[in-house]
């Protein structure tokens, strides 16, 4: 791991080592906030910020944390960051914060954050840890945006709240697929994303 170049720390999680489709971490929030693009992007940014900063902080103090209580220390650092994010969102984007409801608080228990802390930040220098956090946050965001894009486009014919599918199509009998807005479609879409990714990259397939 020590030899991994810094640029790869950011690039790998986007594709080969994606936190959602390959490491299977942080699914909970990925599914729930993807009905529309806007909350998905806000969520992606929040998670990236929290992952990056918590990776940095834990990596800075990694030599002083006794290993027996490291989980508690990590949880405290993460929840401190999440409270900051939550307060910022409440102050500047109150409506969106309401829409994301409990899922902002759940960044604390988002496995991506804890997973990266355990797997990377505890054993690496601050700079790579920061980059790793950013990379994984972006990888998570990428999947969120893909799923939210499909769900919003086909579910309500809009992107970012703007009508994309023209009225003429509706006049011809096109209808929004309301099912896209329901929870099950999020699961199936992620399944399909995994399917596509793994058919392209044979080395990721499970035996």
């Amino acid at each position: 791991m020590a030899q991994t170049k810094n640029s790869e720390l950011i690039k790998n999680p986007l594709n080969l080592n994606n936190p959602i489709t390959v490491q299977v971490l942080g699914i909970c929030s990925a599914l729930a906030v993807t009905v529309k693009l806007e909350p998905a992007i806000v969520m992606a940014i929040s998670v990236t910020v929290v992952t990056a900063l918590s990776n940095l902080i834990i990596s800075l103090i990694r030599n002083t944390i006794p290993s027996r209580i490291r989980i508690i220390v990590q949880l405290m650092v993460v929840s401190f960051l999440v409270i900051l994010v939550d307060q910022v969102l409440k102050a500047f984007m109150y409506e969106l914060d309401k829409a994301l409801s409990v899922y902002i608080g759940l960044i604390i228990t988002n496995c991506i954050v804890m997973g990266r802390l355990e797997a990377f930040a505890l054993g690496n220098k601050p700079l790579p840890a920061l980059l790793d956090g950013i990379g994984n946050g972006l990888g998570y965001g990428l999947i969120l945006v893909i799923v939210a894009f499909v769900r919003e486009l086909f579910g309500s014919g809009q992107l970012f709240g703007f009508q994309i599918i023209p009225q003429a199509c509706y006049d011809l009998g096109y209808e929004n697929c309301g099912f896209m807005l329901n929870p099950p479609m999020a699961l199936i879409l992620i399944g399909v994303v995994i399917w596509i990714q793994r058919s392209k990259m044979k080395e990721l397939q499970e035996k």
Partner: peptide, 23 residues
């Protein structure tokens, strides 16, 4: 199961179908 879907992929889709049933 088709190779690329093995493991997690099919688990997601099964879970989606179960969620539909629960709906």
């Amino acid at each position: 199961v088709p190779a690329p879907l093995k493991g997690v992929g099919i688990a997601f889709i099964v879970c989606g179908l179960m969620a539909m049933a629960f709906m």
